[in-house]
């Protein structure tokens, strides 16, 4: 007997860095996702890891979409609203592709490792060879897949390289527990010596002290 199964409902592909962020989260954890966008990571974590998730998103359309999908999300700003959260109130504080758009990345990082027992941060690596090439040869502000906007319209005001980030974490007394550099296909780069040059996105698992 030939039973036709209904086609699985199509879900949009998840951003590669979010897939790696999700892998770092332990099942059943309490997670605060800062800059949660349309809630893709929160949804993934709820569905696959039974996570108790909350989100903060600056754009109203994103917040409305999240809440309308049953996710607990507030409209807020990483630069302004993290101060209200108590110490160690979450197992993980996640900041994905948002650090470079904050006004005070140092304070945001300190808040992340204060609010979460662990923090997970992903950011576009400005040390990626395409960026270097674009500036070196083209002599123009780089626009790439992870940095698509022109210099005059970008939200990204605090870009850094993977090595810069490691250096700042060290200065702030933040321990890097795991460090991933993802290539343009979202695959981790095996040799860490090439991470700063070959990685398009950095994903870090951090803790205080």
């Amino acid at each position: 007997m030939n039973v036709q199964r209904p086609a699985p409902t199509a879900t949009p592909p998840i951003r590669p860095d979010l897939r790696h962020v999700a892998e770092m989260v332990t099942p059943g954890a309490r997670v605060l996702d800062i800059g949660c966008g349309d809630g893709a990571l929160l949804k993934l974590l709820a569905d696959e890891k039974g996570v108790d998730g909350r989100g903060i998103e600056i754009k109203q359309e994103g917040v409305n979409a999240c809440v309308a999908n049953g996710l607990s999300v507030i409209q807020g700003d990483a630069d302004l609203d993290l101060a209200y959260y108590p110490d160690r109130s979450f197992d993980f504080a996640v900041l994905s592709l948002t650090l470079q758009a904050t006004r005070d990345p140092r304070q945001v990082l300190l808040d992340l490792v204060r609010i979460g027992r662990r923090a997970i941060v992903s950011f576009p690596n400005f040390g990626h060879w395409r960026v270097r090439w674009s500036l070196l040869v083209g002599g123009r502000m780089p626009t790439t897949a992870t940095l698509p906007d022109a210099w005059w319209s970008t939200q990204n005001i605090h870009l850094c390289t993977i090595d810069d980030f490691v250096d700042l974490a060290d200065r702030l007394g933040i321990t890097v527990e795991r460090k991933l550099a993802l290539d343009s296909h979202g695959q981790p780069i095996k040799l860490s010596a090439f991470a700063n040059c070959m990685g398009e996105t950095g994903v870090f698992l951090l803790r205080k002290g």
Partner: peptide
């Protein structure tokens, strides 16, 4: 501040 479950729109 008390880590409550809150949405805000």
């Amino acid at each position: 501040a008390v880590a409550a479950n809150v949405s805000f729109v």
